[in-house]
Design a protein around this nucleic acid. Sequence first.
DNA 1: TCGCCTAACTAACGATAGATAGAATGTCAT
DNA 2: ATGACATTCTATCTATCGTTAGTTAGGCGA
Lengths: 211, 211
Amino acid sequence: MSAADPSVKLSAPRKTKGALPAARPDQIMDIAARQFRARGYAAVSLRDIATEAGMRTPSLYYHFPSKDDLVIAVMNRGIAVVREAVTEALAALPPDAEPFAKLETAMRVHLRALHGLSDYTSANVRIFGQLPEELRRANLPERRAYQEIWADLLSATCPDNLEMLAIRVPFVIGALNATLEWFDPDRGDLDVLADQVGRVLLAGLKEREDR
Amino acid sequence: MSAADPSVKLSAPRKTKGALPAARPDQIMDIAARQFRARGYAAVSLRDIATEAGMRTPSLYYHFPSKDDLVIAVMNRGIAVVREAVTEALAALPPDAEPFAKLETAMRVHLRALHGLSDYTSANVRIFGQLPEELRRANLPERRAYQEIWADLLSATCPDNLEMLAIRVPFVIGALNATLEWFDPDRGDLDVLADQVGRVLLAGLKEREDR
DNA sequence: TCGCCTAACTAACGATAGATAGAATGTCAT
DNA sequence: ATGACATTCTATCTATCGTTAGTTAGGCGA
């Protein structure tokens, strides 16, 4: 394939100190995230990751104490990335932006994180349901922190109705995440997707009890 | 645990011919579906299935030629079950039912199939993304046939707009399926879920271009 | 120059997976 | 009673997994 001829030894430690061409652990995480995203959790072995990184499997253990630790690191970064992106985008809005304008922005950024911006976020969404329960639990704090952002945003759509909010938060995030399973940004326009999905969800959330 | 002490030999073939207490292959598929639903694809081994069925692993090979074949059978039944349920429910509606009444019915039945009615359907949704591509491909014909029902239903929400329809069909199905990952029918009321989800989606789909 | 740190290597282990071969068991029609 | 069939068994194989142990080689500070 493209990478990794193990007979060619990578010549020793890094010379560059200030240039930092992506630290090795980061590079390994990049590869892991891309493979998890493409092929799922169980289908990706440490051998696969090591091969693409140009090293032997046990060498990975110098950078990560176990496969679980590597996976947890990738998963947590996946949520951190999208949370920071959404937070920044919301902060860039005018302070008096309407609740539904904020919602639309958050949806667009979330979709962009899933489809192209971050292999980490898409890997997280893709493999979360495949992980043994222990690993899933390790990702829950990050997920809950991210959900709080959406709870803030969505509370404007159903004020004083916590039961409705408790359903709408995971429903909206889940509906957005589900696009990962069928939408291919290489074959369709991501902006069109965001327009269509945003329109349906925003209109649906805007609808008042009385119609 | 509850089932299967292999030292107690199950006494030979079935006597009952007309009574049919669920044919053995069906019983095995039931167990497989339940386990796949609960723990995902990779986490369920043939040993696990055999144990719960009260037999040794190789005995499974008398009924199914391989694990792949068993999985494919479970997956296909998962779609078949929900498709038949939706088809029947739609047929039971008055012939002059409005398009959005049909849509709401389909959504309710689909949610019910996911949460309780059928381990096959929930197993399908749960593990589809975990399967190697070859197995996923084997389930595509069933899935496409089921999607056609929804294409019919949803075409009323965006007449003469095939691009929009091509997005709305997988989006709606995906949004419904995603509830499997966060909604627990033991802790929440399924009817409440259907009310809330149905309201948002139906209102969103009803919204006209001009607002 | 010496010794430590970094970063990789080779070799191997134990566990578990799906799968196969062939023997054994019980039922039933003849 | 017997032979055919259906069903499950035991025993074993091969492949692959994550992981550990111990080793090697280069760069850098004292």
